[in-house]
Design a protein around this nucleic acid. Structure first.
Length: 464
RNA sequence: GUCCCCAUCGUCUAGAGGCCUAGGACACCUCCCUUUCACGGAGGCGACCGGGGUUCGAAUCCCCGUGGGGACGCCA
């Protein structure tokens, strides 16, 4: 049987890191088995769903390169079909009308909570043989409930968590259609997973408790039960739950912060899944290796430090050419004027092994394209009066120098030898004058790229 | 409260009863490289939640406890 997986977000916000990992695992599972990956937008909560959120999810998936074979399907466009199935369930006695008002239900729930029992519908409108139902009130438009079995257990072998068993007694008759006739989440999922032929449902483990209900409905409909794999959640850097209020960020924020999609993907792949000691691997490799057996059932804490390390790796590995367009944008954002010279590719190559994000890269090389911002502490420490004559002498030598890193190095060495100094004694003030800070790659290479005129101008600026 | 799930270094994890003196990675520390800072290289620190079983033998299986999380909506 062909594998068919799906990612089914509700468009109430951006694609966050947890959703991205769920999508990644579903996607990889389909790829691994040469199956289909389906995108389904669960937008039945009209009040909270927005087109902007749909777009944000699409953007996030596109940035990560998580392409889908089918969809996006929108549940709001499948209303007719849901209503047909509801009618079928009504006809077959698997569903029934319930005329309880919200107030009535609230009171029931509160009462049960107080008594310390699990709040659930008491079945007062559930038809039973020999039972006399109350007279339907005129002013209530009824909801439709699924007639859940009352005995036995629902058992499934979760592909991540192992066997899970829940007693039907713990379940109640859930609402599958609202008073206005629109179907609810648990029902739409059932119809869609069934009719879209989903073979493995890979989703967050906040859905574990929905699974027995869904299985019961699937069985009532005579549908094939898919396999389920419930992924545990991702905690924030601080070990706290990620929520809209606390720490949850869009995957697009990682783009903005200068992370490469391949780094985010690689990091996410290793969060909760492993393949021996392998840490760095391509998505192609991941799709070959991926399986559900090596997913941890426990929650994982997000670790930005490690993401940074992986990102640094991918930046190092990337060609300057592939980074140039992105870096240009970031430089412009920093207010730098990216001109022909110094050559951006050469500058990127000089710096890409030293940074862990693209923002860091852009920030670090900005001084090539705009006047350096002088770090006060560095200036005070290195731009001492006794060194200024030395630099002035060097400037004279440089004026005549052939502008190559090697000849620049020679010029500096000449001054260093003449004055009987250590190399850093000259290199450090130079570094601060030219870059504004006390850290940079080899100063001769920096100077070579910066250009003779600019170097002399910057030295002059400080000396005068 | 009720039900469900989870539990190995600070963090991500390896581990399917003997290969475990518990392995790798990030972080941290030391040293090396060096023109500063990084990068890189070599070392180091550091964990099986507790208690009972089962077994010749348990990080691995079972039970209890503890701790954490999730679910209990006319949200998804």
């Amino acid at each position: 049987m062909i594998v068919r997986t799906r990612f089914a977000p509700s468009p109430t916000g951006f694609l966050h890191i947890g959703g991205a990992r769920t999508a990644l695992f579903s996607w990889a599972f389909a790829k691994k088995h040469k199956g289909d990956f389906i995108l389904r937008i669960e937008d039945t909560d009209v009040a909270r769903s927005t087109p902007e959120a749909v777009q944000a999810i699409l953007d996030g998936m596109h940035w990560l390169g998580l392409d889908y074979d089918e969809g996006p399907f929108y549940q709001m466009q499948r209303m007719d079909r849901y209503k047909e199935v509801i009618q079928k369930m009504l006809d077959e006695g698997n569903a029934y009308y319930c005329y309880c008002s919200r107030e009535e239900l609230d009171a029931l729930r509160e009462n049960q909570m107080q008594q310390g029992v699990k709040p659930r519908y008491d079945g007062r409108w559930r038809p039973e043989t020999g039972k006399v139902l109350p007279q339907p009130p005129q002013d209530v438009s009824p909801v439709i409930r699924f007639r859940n079995p009352q005995s036995g257990n629902v058992v499934w072998n979760d592909l991540v968590k192992g066997e899970i068993s829940i007693a039907n007694q713990e379940l109640d008759d859930l609402i599958i259609a609202r008073g206005d006739g629109t179907p609810t989440y648990n029902f739409c999922v059932v119809v869609d997973d069934w009719e879209m032929g989903i073979t493995q449902v890979i989703r967050g483990d906040d859905h574990v408790n929905n699974t027995p209900r869904q299985i019961n409905m699937l069985m009532a409909l005579g549908a094939t039960i898919p396999q389920y794999a419930h992924l545990s959640m991702i905690l924030g850097d601080d070990g706290q739950k990620l929520s809209k209020r606390h720490g949850a960020v869009s995957v697009m924020q990682y783009h903005e912060d200068g992370y490469l999609p391949e780094a985010v993907l690689n990091y996410l792949a290793r969060l909760g899944w492993s393949h021996g000691d392998d840490e760095i691997f391509s998505m192609q490799q991941f799709c070959e290796w991926f399986d559900l057996d090596h997913i941890t059932p426990s929650a994982a804490q997000f670790n930005t430090e490690k993401l940074n390390w992986i990102n640094a790796h991918y930046i190092k590995q990337a060609s300057a050419e592939s980074l140039a367009a992105d870096i240009t944008q970031r430089l412009v954002k920093l207010g730098a004027n990216v001109s022909e010279q110094p050559n951006l590719l050469a500058v990127i190559n000089l710096y890409k092994e030293r940074v862990s994000t693209l923002n860091e890269l852009a920030t670090n090389i900005a001084y090539f394209y705009q006047k350096p911002v002088m770090d006060a502490a560095a200036a005070e420490k290195h731009l001492t009066n006794d060194i200024k004559p030395v630099i002035a002498a060097l400037a004279e030598l440089l004026k005549a120098a052939d502008w190559q890193a090697e000849s620049i190095h020679h010029a500096i060495n000449e001054v260093v030898t003449q004055r009987q100094l250590k190399f850093p004694k000259v290199a450090m003030p130079l570094r601060v004058m030219l870059t504004g800070i006390a850290q940079s790659p080899s100063i001769d290479q920096v100077m070579a790229l910066l250009g003779k005129d600019e170097v002399l101008a910057r030295i002059e600026q400080v000396l005068k």
